[in-house]
């Protein structure tokens, strides 16, 4: 049987076997490197980490790595640290997403209006967003510092605080203070996404509402909010996915402490994987977190899609 290819444009060659012409084959060959890279850097690690999660792998015991099936997953759910971390993560995510979204809507409403300095304010808004996460964490850690922190200095000078206090050392406040740092950084992007959506709302709708006698609040509820649905959905899903997996701020500001006050799921995974070097349970926890993020995002989309 001949294997000679027909090189004519649109020629038959092996088309009868592969169903591909010269253009398709060229495209496939050119796309192949990208697909190969994606397979190597994305698909393979994802599948391999799942394989790891089915083994009892402790790096400091390299000679034993038994296959344990789903035991690592069962072990996680028996671990009280896991449920503690779930509680902390839920609280942190709810606070961060709710406050970020509310503030973003308010800022977007403000910047959607024309007033002197509006452009400068919009530009300044992007500064926190452009600040690298590590810098953001360090900056807020210094602001909260118990000996030279700006927050202490400000409150003492205003007479609202008698003496300097260890803000991050207070387990009742730790998560809220970290959430504040996260909100400061994330809110600008959320506001930007909402402004873009707001700009797309036709002025006719507002004029019609005014003619119907709607006040500012009614126009917001009946015109702005429904039109914001795509933007809000994007903000909620994005912020939820980011917040639930937040790690950098916890590493820089509290290392999961004080005690277990900021022991979130991401921190637990870090401790399990990179400090205890238990890669099997660490991988299993990562899968649980990924699934939780996926399900939560799906629920938000479904819920918001029906409500708005």
């Amino acid at each position: 049987m001949s294997t000679t290819l027909d090189r004519r444009p649109g020629g038959s060659g092996r088309r009868w076997r592969l169903g591909l012409g010269y253009d398709e084959r060229s495209a496939a060959i050119l796309v192949f490197p990208v697909v190969a890279v994606l397979l190597v850097v994305a698909a393979y690690p994802i599948l391999y980490s799942f394989w790891v999660s089915l083994h009892d792998i402790v790096l400091t015991r390299p000679l034993r790595r038994p296959f344990v099936g789903f035991d690592n997953y069962l072990r996680i759910f028996d671990d009280e640290r896991f449920w503690l971390a779930v509680g902390r993560t839920t609280f942190y995510t709810v606070v961060t997403v709710a406050v970020t979204t509310i503030l973003a809507v308010l800022v977007a409403l403000l910047l959607n209006e024309a007033f002197p300095g509006q452009r400068i304010l919009a530009a300044l808004l992007l500064v926190p967003w452009a600040t690298p996460s590590v810098v953001n964490g360090l900056m807020w850690k210094w602001i909260y510092d118990p000996t030279y922190g700006l927050l202490n200095a400000l409150l003492v000078q205003l007479g609202l605080l008698e003496r300097y206090r260890a803000w991050l050392g207070d387990p009742d406040l730790t998560l809220l203070l970290i959430a504040n740092a996260a909100i400061w950084k994330q809110m600008p992007l959320a506001a930007l996404l909402l402004i873009v959506t707001m700009k797309a709302i036709p002025d006719d709708l507002y004029r019609a509402a005014k003619v119907d006698g709607a006040n500012v609040f009614q126009r917001f509820v009946h015109v702005t909010l429904p039109a914001l649905r795509p933007g809000l959905m994007l903000v909620l899903v994005y912020e939820t996915m980011i917040s639930i997996r937040h790690f950098d701020l916890f590493l820089i500001m509290t290392q999961g402490g004080p005690g277990d006050a900021s022991f979130t799921l991401s921190w637990l995974i870090y401790v399990e994987t990179f400090r205890s070097l238990r890669f099997g349970t660490g991988a299993a926890m990562s899968y649980v977190l990924a699934m939780a993020t996926f399900l939560l995002s799906w629920a938000v989309i479904r819920w918001l899609g029906k409500r708005l």
Partner: peptide, 23 residues
């Protein structure tokens, strides 16, 4: 011990809990 690296995480939390007055 061979398990020091894992144990010390729990130990650190325990000591901090005492210092915070939470345990």
């Amino acid at each position: 011990s061979p398990w020091f690296g894992e144990w010390v995480e729990t130990s650190n939390q325990a000591w901090q809990s005492v210092c915070l007055g939470r345990a």
